[in-house]
Design a protein around this nucleic acid. Structure first.
Lengths: 222, 222
DNA sequence: ATTTAATAAAATATCGATATTATTGATTAA
DNA sequence: TTAATCAATAATATCGATATTTTATTAAAT
């Protein structure tokens, strides 16, 4: 009796394209407020009507797209209020998940944090930083921190918020000083987590999220 | 210059059917683990292929359905572990939202809580309680409590968790004693919230959620 | 000029048919 | 028997075409 093997089965077009569009939105390939018309999108991604719509529907459910009845799909507008909401919720939920992970994490959890941090470091030390790779590894590092929280629902919410947050982060110009401080925070969060310093790690993660949002926040008037 | 009027526009079939299927799942019209085949579902809901799939895709994104690549959709299995996760996350997020609402809520918020509580009461006092109506009003009451939290993302997560939680609740047999205590908790939560007793209201809501889950939890071995 | 109405154009949402993939059942080999 | 292979059946996912709804354009009216 073999296990159902999760669903490593063949990917669907709908699913492939969902991932593609998701990445493109986060990476700012579309403007805030931009209309995503069906026919042009089909042409752009080389797929048919149905799988495209399924992908957009799914993205709408995670807040990376907004859907209006009979009026199609568009990229959400950006605003200070929205960013503040995402930022606050992310702090609230991700910090809770980190504390739970610190309470429950095992050797494998610790090892994964170290592994992902190492990979992130390696990417940063390259002469010409591969932006897409950095994004992927940065996400993986943050996920590794909370993975042991043992709560699928919280992990799901963290992913949703992370995606929305990243769209804002990539919208803002990079700042070398802030970047350096963020990197240092990564290191400290890693060490504090593995040292099981629950509240200190949580507090630092909260600060880290706030600092990550700083550049994007500056784009909006108070 | 007229406002875009939200999207009160014509509903789509996809959207109508999404709401219908969502309600049917929460109300236990399908068995845990049951396969949702496309053709039979089209026949059952009297709609075509595409809008059905879009509705199912959306439901999968909120966790009320699971999707497997190339193997369609099914109702999620139930388990103690899953229920515990949903219950804990709901406590964590909904209590936070309540506290924020208590901090920020205005007259309108207070009035809405009173109004929704009153409606819920009225439904309960009927000779023959209309189950569907009670569910609707119960959801509205809980939403009214947290609505003023001013966080769209937290409200969204609360809705997702509420739906998943309700499926479990409706799975378990009703217990008159527990029901009476839950009703009394509603009253107290309402009063404490309007009295701005932040931490007491939060604590009671947490207990309320735990007690709501009690009957369902008893269905699973420890 | 600015709104209102009617028409044309464009876009969305939906249908019905089909290709692709998974599942079932039968057949053969170990 | 059990396992493995292949064909048949059934189900999913996708395509292409069409009906419905929205948006843009033009003409008429205040």
């Amino acid at each position: 009796m073999t296990q159902p093997v999760l669903n490593a089965s063949t990917n669907t077009i709908s699913n492939d394209i969902y991932q593609l569009i998701r990445a493109d939105i986060i990476n700012g390939k579309f403007q805030p407020g931009e209309k995503l018309q069906i026919k042009p999108m089909c042409a752009l991604y080389q797929v048919g009507n149905s799988p495209l719509r399924e992908a957009l529907t799914k993205l709408a459910a995670t807040g990376l797209i907004v859907q209006q009845n009979q009026r199609g799909f568009r990229i959400p507008q950006v605003s200070r209020k929205d960013l503040e909401d995402i930022c606050n919720s992310r702090i609230h939920i991700e910090v809770a998940a980190l504390k739970m992970a610190i309470a429950k994490g095992d050797d494998h959890w610790e090892a994964q944090i170290l592994a992902q941090y190492h990979q992130l470091q390696k990417t940063q030390q390259q002469a010409l930083v591969d932006k897409a790779q950095w994004e992927r590894r940065h996400t993986r590092f943050h996920n590794a921190l909370i993975e042991a929280c043992d709560s699928p629902s919280l992990l799901g919410f963290c992913n949703i918020l992370h995606d929305q947050f990243d769209r804002y982060r990539r919208l803002a110009p990079a700042d070398a000083n802030i970047r350096a401080e963020l990197d240092e925070q990564h290191r400290k969060i890693m060490l504090l987590s593995i040292a099981r310093e629950e509240s200190e790690a949580g507090e630092l993660l909260a600060q880290h999220i706030k600092l990550s949002a700083k550049a994007a926040m500056a784009m909006f008037p108070k």
